[in-house]
Design a protein around this nucleic acid. Structure first.
Length: 158
DNA sequence: GCCAACGTTGGC
DNA sequence: GCCAACGTTGGC
């Protein structure tokens, strides 16, 4: 059973277009510094899982594209790099605190799906993203929610 | 730019 | 272990 996820990114920093144009359309999802999100990255996200690529802090915010997990959790290299803004001096290589997965862009959404439409969709009332105060940058997505977001974005569910 | 919500830190 | 202070997220 494939699972589904939503990853947030600020498009000014790294947008779905950046991923689309990256070498191999791939990147490592680095810089996550929240334990709940870390646990998903390290323990739960599996190769082949679907990813909704969400633009946060954007005008407007919303889902821009579809990606998939192509490499499962491994230590985030930025935590050990003193020159990186995500450096964590208290994390040791023999016991890494932070993890990444690799994702690959899969499909552009014919239609960007803005947050206000997600909030208005009756089938998405329970989606984590639209819950009050939800800030988690890595969120699980239910299969029915995945299908609905793709449909709203103009894609036939695979 | 504002600020509510949330997670983390650190004194006790 | 509590909880106030602080920093961050992210919509508006």
């Amino acid at each position: 059973m494939p699972k589904y996820w939503l990853l947030k990114s600020e498009p000014d920093v790294f947008s779905f277009d950046h991923l689309w144009k990256a070498k191999g359309k791939r990147t490592l999802w680095d810089g996550v510094r929240n334990y709940t999100a870390r646990n998903f990255l390290r323990d739960s996200m599996k190769k082949g899982d679907g990813v909704l690529f969400y633009h946060s802090n954007a005008k407007p915010p919303g889902v821009a594209g579809v990606a998939e997990v192509v490499r499962e959790g491994y230590p985030d290299p930025t935590q050990f790099d003193p020159a990186d803004s995500h450096h964590d001096p208290s994390s040791k290589p023999e016991d890494p605190r932070w993890y990444v997965v690799d994702i690959k862009a899969k499909r552009r959404l014919p239609r960007f799906v803005p947050l206000d439409e997600l909030k208005a969709a009756s089938k998405l009332k329970e989606m984590a993203l639209v819950q009050r105060g939800q800030r988690l940058s890595v969120q699980p997505v239910r299969a029915a929610e995945w299908r609905e977001v793709l449909r709203m974005g103009g894609l036939e569910p695979e």
